[in-house]
Design a protein around this nucleic acid. Structure first.
Length: 800
DNA sequence: CGATGCTCCGTTTTT
DNA sequence: CGGAGCATCG
């Protein structure tokens, strides 16, 4: 549901707006009233129940403070109590506290919890929000100073991409060769690092489109300005520019924000770091809360370094460690701690608990991914039969592709589940379309929105017509809408599109007029109906059409909560989320990333295999840093569990349609033997699966040695060769695929396969078969029992 | 202009 | 294997 709006700023507040001159009346920390209030503080109820470290983190109000809060150590509690404390002791008004989070969800939760602690005062916290919503608020006030109007539009990723495509084509570059997606990624990474078009290193900018990357970046920014639009990155970058070019304005904010708090500091990128540093320069009352061991967003620009270097960047900083875990039982916590201790780049914390040891972390080997899903399904059924609540069970996967097989299994068993994550409400096509209509009604010059819906639903205004519109718009330097108005009066368009376009223009004028008298939700309703948009989905017979119509209804309904269309559009571009307040009895299925911040009694962790987790791509792209981030992900996964953590790996997994034999994750070796229990997979009926006795308890799991040792490789060969019911799957001497040692690429051998068409081969899963075709290292084999499959040659053995 | 084949590609995801 | 996005045909 749509959260109540606190993003826009229509609540008058005496402490808001251009430098309030009542700042002088603020109780300074030494004033009598402040001291009197401070004297009461120790008795304040909110401090009760905090442990020593937590309390220290709450009370260390002055100067830079870094709170290293391990998983489950009461981070949010400290943050909210600290804010309550600042307010209750009179150190600052709610409006003088800047509290930044990453997600809207976190912001909302914090606001609620502060409200619960100290009551309505939390309403006055107009500077509690995400980096982006706060950036927006600041930018709207000073938009003209950075070349924008205060009603600028915030572009979503789809608009961004469309714009970049246009920019690339306008430069005469082949978009197929140099895709907009790639440019978007590049520009995004520059913005993450706080780099404007002038600051990108020439070499780096040159990497795209034969040296034209920088030019494209600039052209893109220029286009944004013309459209009076910004993208997400700009919400921070333009603040930086504003403050650097107008120190007086920076000073206003430095004055205003007496205390600053940042949640999830380990996730900040360079731009966000610079943003914070500028603001904190004066008063230096910056409190960052985070956990370097939970930094899992490096791939999208987060800099673990920000948290690692905090003491260096903010001299004299107080560092407080929260190490007492209130979530997990002993074995789980020890396992997670020992695992994460293998990382080099960390500040180091030792989580401890006073809880009982509880159950050991289990490790179960499955024959293949299907088997793995089956084992998990069975375990869930057993737990459920033992009255374990399904909503206290989560399955955490590394990549979403793992979900399908698990879902299939759960469906088959009739276990209700929900997938967390996935496409956001406002990212859905129907929502973006509806919004585009409203944007055009609200702002006819919004070319991107106009272009998006001009032919949705299909009205016969295709590429040809759009091209003519574009040409005119560019030549006359007017928005598309205006170009259209001109063109319908001429003969340049064919009669049919011309008439259609004219009708559309008339409709838009009518809707705009309507919006002067009707409420915005009524306008929306009318627009969606009269444009034929709802009709389009009603006629659509596909399975999700009904859901889309439901989403549209939800959109219209939610609009009623806003004073005007403008503020609604603002909300939606930054904040709007899907309705996730479903508390029904279901197992949760999500990626490890999506699980951060959540906790469950029982957590299933499938797919702990080399290549999948740690993910090969992370290793290839980021080497050791990538490996460490993967390990942090493993740590996050384990620490989500309160009472039970169950790790699985499969010996065979299908990747891109081909079966690959896999090796258990090195993270399994990172776990301490004392806290782990190897669980024998029950005998199963898989073809060639574990038929008899134990296998992987013999794989010397906790020697701490690398899987690359000869002993390990022998163990592997032995395992595959003797324990699979007779079908030997020994990998041939030349081991294909990259070998990784601690994230460093050691060898990558490609080489054509020695198999010939017509030859007989034996595969570990499919048994004997005849080679039908050879394509590099891929073989098409007609298997005697399993039929025709494409397999990698390294998984079959030639038969004579 | 629109529907159907075809090729290509294949983490993680928030704002 | 399966989806998305594109190109070609009708």
């Amino acid at each position: 549901m749509v959260a109540p709006m606190n993003q826009t700023d229509n609540s008058p507040d005496p402490h808001d707006g251009p430098i309030p001159d009542d700042l002088a009346h603020q109780p300074s920390s030494s004033s009598l009233s402040a001291r009197a209030r401070a004297a009461v503080a120790p008795q304040l109820a909110y401090l009760n129940g905090l442990n020593l470290e937590q309390r220290a983190a709450v009370e260390a109000t002055e100067g830079p403070v870094l709170v290293l809060a391990g998983a489950g150590t009461g981070k949010t509690r400290v943050l909210t109590t600290r804010i309550a404390h600042l307010i209750a002791t009179g150190k600052a008004w709610p409006s003088q506290i800047l509290a930044v989070t990453f997600t809207n969800k976190a912001a909302r939760e914090m606001r609620e919890r502060i409200g619960r602690t100290i009551g309505d005062v939390a309403e006055g916290m107009q500077w509690l929000g995400t980096f982006h919503s706060i950036g927006t608020k600041i930018l709207r006030r000073h938009a003209e100073l950075v070349g924008l109007r205060s009603d600028f539009t915030i572009l979503g990723t789809d608009d961004q991409l469309r714009l970049m495509k246009q920019v690339i084509e306008a430069e005469g570059i082949d978009e197929k060769r140099w895709p907009a997606r790639q440019l978007a990624g590049l520009i995004d990474s520059w913005k993450n690092r706080g780099l404007g078009p002038d600051q990108v290193a020439a070499g780096e900018a040159g990497a795209f489109a034969n040296g034209r990357g920088g030019r494209l970046y600039r052209a893109y920014q220029d286009r944004l300005k013309v459209l009076n639009a910004v993208d997400f990155g700009d919400l921070l970058l333009e603040c930086l520019r504003l403050w650097r070019e107008h120190p007086d304005i920076l000073e206003q904010y430095q004055e205003r924000f007496r205390y600053m708090l940042v949640d999830e500091y380990q996730d900040t990128n360079v731009a966000q770091y610079l943003w914070l540093r500028l603001l904190a320069q004066k008063r230096k009352n910056l409190c960052c809360v985070g956990d370097d061991d939970q930094s899992i967003y490096g791939w999208r620009g987060a800099e673990v370094d920000n948290i690692l270097r905090f003491e260096h960047d903010f001299p004299g900083a107080t560092v407080i460690r929260l190490e007492r875990n209130y979530r997990s039982t002993g074995h789980i916590l020890s396992a997670a701690s020992v695992l994460i201790a293998k990382n080099q780049g960390r500040l180091g914390k030792t989580l401890r608990t006073e809880d009982e040891p509880g159950e050991k972390v289990t490790i179960t080997g499955a024959w293949d991914s299907e088997d793995e899903a089956r084992l998990i399904g069975e375990e869930i059924e057993t737990l459920h039969a033992g009255r374990h609540s399904l909503s206290e069970i989560a399955i955490l996967v590394r990549i979403s592709a793992q979900m399908r097989e698990i879902e299939d299994r759960l469906v088959q068993l009739g276990v209700p589940y929900r997938v967390i994550g996935g496409p956001r409400f406002y990212e859905r096509a129907e929502i973006r379309d509806a919004l585009a209509y409203l944007r055009v009604v609200n702002q006819p010059a919004d070319d991107l929105a106009f272009e998006r819906i001009v032919n949705v639903p299909k009205r016969g205004l295709g590429d040809a017509t759009i091209q003519v519109l574009h040409n005119h718009a560019r030549a006359a330097r007017v928005p598309l809408m205006e170009a259209a108005r001109f063109l319908v009066e001429t003969d340049e368009l064919k009669p049919k599109p011309r008439a259609t376009l004219r009708d559309l223009l008339i409709s838009f004028s009518r809707w705009s007029k309507l919006s002067e008298t009707l409420s915005q939700s009524e306008v929306a309703q009318t627009v969606l109906e009269e444009s034929g948009y709802t009709d389009m989905w009603q006629k659509e017979k596909s399975a999700d059409a009904a859901g889309r119509l439901e989403n549209l209804k939800e959109l219209v309904r939610s609009m009623e909560e806003f004073p005007d269309l403008q503020s609604f559009l603002e909300h939606v571009s930054l904040v709007m989320e899907a309705n996730e307040s479903d508390t029904s009895e279901r197992v949760s299925l999500m990626t490890l990333h999506a699980a951060k911040g959540l906790e469950f009694d029982t957590v299933f962790l499938p797919g702990w295999e080399e290549g999948l987790f740690p993910n090969q791509r992370a290793l290839d792209e980021s080497g050791r840093a990538g490996l460490e981030e993967e390990r942090r992900l493993a740590h996050v996964g384990l620490t989500r569990a309160r009472r039970r953590a169950k790790i699985y790996f499969a010996s065979n997994r299908r990747i891109h349609g081909l079966w690959n034999s896999t090796v258990p994750s090195r993270f399994i070796d990172d776990l301490p033997e004392a806290n782990v229990e190897i669980v024998e997979a029950p005998a199963n009926f898989s073809y060639g699966g574990y038929g008899g006795g134990s296998r992987f308890d013999r794989m010397q799991p906790f020697s701490g040695s690398s899987y690359q040792t000869p002993g390990w490789q022998r163990a592997q060969a032995h395992r595959a060769g003797t324990d699979d019911g007779g079908y030997s799957a020994r990998r041939s001497g030349d081991r294909r695929g990259p070998l990784m040692i601690e994230g460093e690429l050691v060898a990558k051998s490609t080489g054509s396969s020695g198999f010939a068409v017509g030859g007989r081969v034996l595969h570990s899963k499919f048994g004997p078969g005849t080679v039908e075709a050879v394509d590099g290292n891929k073989l098409t084999v007609e298997f005697d029992k399993a039929g025709r499959k494409m397999v990698l040659d390294s998984f079959v053995e030639a038969l004579r």
